[in-house]
């Protein structure tokens, strides 16, 4: 029987109340949203917070909308909501493809976007997606909000730049012309964490990739990205050879480690194959026809 250690419980009624509770209880307090990453870790006693601050009543953080040229996702949006959102499907198939392979439908009913990001599991899928899409993350504290790039959100495994009196409130994804994006994941069984997964986004205008994003997860990329491959693609015309070389660079520069999901060379191989596939699909989507 798995039971969390003793913990106190508070329920926040608003964003400002949540921040006030965080300030009052200090660094031993943890926000709980869906709880589907946090509670399993508490059951295993890998995390023992003194206080849980439940933010499930914060409907103000539960939205998916377009504002200006950005898709904005509130931190309390559930995985199932992201998966079924027509706005998300229209603009970012990468998100839909990733969400389909995150856990299972019942877990997705409960798990949240903000919770997944803040849990910061090194095998987490949305971190790679938001890296590829060069999303911005909005973090709120009592003295105002700040915005950080998705690629500078993590400062280590299970660790983020959100401090103990702050809360992640929103993900902002730029909607830019000529975008094509895709997600590719290999898992041991349905709903498992990735052995390796790759998200890609390319922005093509007049036959040239003017920007590219490649997100990696589960392969030791601290910021869930592949900057060498991204830089290589920028300013060039898409071709199978170009994509192969970018995939090679992504595989060469990541840092997978051997574990029960496979040896290092296998994971590196996966990164190469999956990057190639994700980029090829992204180019097809951006140009509605391919090379």
């Amino acid at each position: 029987m798995q039971v969390p250690a003793s913990v106190d419980y508070e329920r926040a009624t608003s964003l400002s109340h949540a921040i006030e509770l965080l300030e009052r209880h200090g660094p031993e307090a943890r926000i709980v949203a869906g709880g589907h990453s946090l509670l399993p870790m508490m059951k295993l006693r890998l995390i023992q917070p003194e206080v849980l601050i439940d933010i499930n009543d914060l409907s103000e953080l539960s939205y998916i909308k377009i504002e200006g040229n950005e898709l904005r996702i509130g931190a309390m949006a559930r995985h199932a909501e992201l998966l079924s959102s027509p706005l998300v499907g229209e603009h970012f198939p990468i998100i839909v493809e990733a969400e389909k392979v995150i856990a299972d439908p019942i877990v997705r009913n409960r798990g949240t976007v903000g919770g997944s990001l803040c849990q910061a599991d090194p095998s987490e899928d949305l971190s790679a997606v938001f890296s590829a899409l060069k999303a911005k993350l909005v973090i709120q504290g009592s003295h105002g909000s700040r915005t950080v790039d998705a690629t500078s959100f993590h400062d280590g495994p299970y660790s983020t730049v959100v401090s103990s009196d702050e809360i992640l409130i929103e993900v902002k994804i730029p909607i830019r012309p000529g975008c094509g994006c895709a997600y590719e994941k290999v898992e041991r069984r349905v709903g498992d964490w990735a052995i390796a997964a790759v998200g890609a986004a390319v922005y093509i205008e007049a036959g040239v990739i003017h920007d590219a994003g490649i997100g990696l997860t589960a392969v030791g990329s601290e910021h869930f990205n592949a900057p060498e491959a991204e830089a290589y693609l920028a300013g060039k015309s898409p071709s199978p050879e170009l994509i192969s070389e970018a995939a090679r660079l992504a595989a060469e520069n990541c840092h997978p480690s051997a574990d029960q999901r496979g040896p290092e060379d296998y994971k590196r191989h996966l990164v190469q194959v999956l990057t190639e596939r994700a980029l090829t699909t992204s180019v097809e989507r951006a140009t509605r026809g391919g090379f």
Partner: peptide, 25 residues
């Protein structure tokens, strides 16, 4: 461990795995 799903019940009309929800929540 929220894998097997035999504990599924509805909370506010949505199926959830009740081994991974606190009664407090």
């Amino acid at each position: 461990t929220s894998n097997c799903g035999t504990c599924v019940l509805w909370m506010d009309g949505i199926p959830v795995k009740s081994c991974t929800v606190l009664a407090a929540m």
